[in-house]
C-alpha cells in the first residue's frame, strides 16, 4: 500500500476547474516532483492536500486512512501528518526564529518544551542557522527565511513534507543553500512532494517526476525517462523548452 494515494482529485476556483482528475501515489521515502508550466495546477495539488483549498471531488488516503476534507476532525488529522513549506516562506512576522519553529510543537502537538527546544536547535543547526535564534524574519535574507521555514515544517515531525516552489522567490545566489538542505532531507529518507522549476535539481534528487498541464497529469516516470525520452508531445514540448540550458 502506498504511503499517500491521491485518486481522481478535482478542484475549482469559482467556475475554473484547476485540477481535472489527478491520480498519483507516493511511497515512503520517495521524493516526488511535480513539474509543468505555470498555472498547470501543481501548487493547487499541495494546497488541496493541506486543506487550504477544498477539493470538489476525489479521494486522498494516507496509509489506510482516507481524508474527508469536509470534516474538520479529518482535516486536522491530515494536517497533523503533513507539513508544507511555501514559496513566500510565510514565517510569522511577529515572532523570532525560535518561536516560529517551536510554536506549533508546543501549542498544538503539546510536546514537552525542553524536548521541542532541543529539537528546534538541532534543526536550525542542520539548516545552518545556529546564530539566528533571536532574529526576526525581516532581519533575515530570503534564503535564510526559507531555511527557517523548512526547519519550522520539520519541527512538526511530518510524515510527508510538501514543498511549494520553495526557491522561486529567492535571489539566484540563495537558491543553492535551500536546495542543499532539501537534498540532505532526501538523503535522510524524508518523504516529500516537491513543486519546482529547478529541473537540474529535480533530475538529481527526485525518485519520480510527474508532469502536469492544465490540471491534468501528462506523464509520469523517473527523471531520466521524462527528461531524456518523454513519450507525449506535450511533455516533449515542455522539456525541450525548460531543459535548453
Amino acid at each position: 500500500m502506498p504511503h499517500l494515494a491521491v485518486e481522481d482529485l478535482r478542484a475549482s476556483y469559482g467556475a475554473l476547474e484547476v485540477l481535472r482528475g489527478i491520480s498519483f501515489s507516493v511511497e515512503k521515502g520517495e521524493l516526488v516532483a511535480l513539474v509543468g508550466p505555470s498555472g498547470s495546477g501543481k501548487s493547487t495539488v499541495l494546497r488541496v492536500l493541506m486543506a487550504l483549498n477544498p477539493p470538489s471531488s476525489g479521494r486522498v488516503q494516507i496509509d489506510d486512512i482516507s481524508i474527508d476534507y469536509g470534516k474538520s476532525g479529518s482535516v486536522r488529522a491530515a494536517r497533523d501528518r503533513m507539513a508544507v513549506v511555501f514559496q513566500q516562506y510565510n514565517l510569522f512576522q511577529n515572532m523570532n526564529v525560535m518561536d516560529n519553529v517551536t510554536l506549533a510543537p508546543r501549542k498544538i502537538k503539546k510536546w514537552p518544551v525542553a524536548e521541542v527546544e532541543e529539537n528546534a536547535r538541532a534543526l536550525l543547526a542542520k539548516v545552518g542557522l545556529t546564530d539566528k535564534h533571536d532574529a526576526y524574519p525581516d532581519e533575515l535574507s530570503g534564503g535564510q527565511q526559507q531555511r527557517v521555514a523548512i526547519a519550522r515544517a520539520l519541527a512538526l515531525k511530518p510524515e510527508i513534507l510538501l514543498l511549494d516552489e520553495v526557491t522561486s522567490a529567492l535571489d539566484p545566489e540563495l537558491v543553492n543553500e535551500v536546495l542543499d538542505t532539501i537534498g540532505e532531507l532526501a538523503a535522510d529518507g524524508m518523504t516529500m512532494i516537491l513543486v519546482s522549476h529547478e529541473m537540474g535539481f529535480v533530475r538529481e534528487v527526485a525518485s519520480r517526476v510527474i508532469m502536469m498541464d492544465a490540471g491534468e497529469i501528462i506523464e509520469t516516470g523517473t527523471p531520466a525517462e521524462l527528461f531524456d525520452a518523454p513519450k507525449s508531445q506535450r511533455a516533449k514540448q515542455f522539456f525541450s523548452k525548460v531543459l535548453r540550458h
Partner: peptide
Amino acid sequence: EQVEAARAMNLSRFQTTTQIVLPQ
C-alpha cells in the same frame, strides 16, 4: 498567507487570530 501558514499547522481560528494576526 500568514493565516494559511498557521492553519496548515493546525492552529485554531482563535489561536491564529490572537497569536499571529492581532500582534501584526
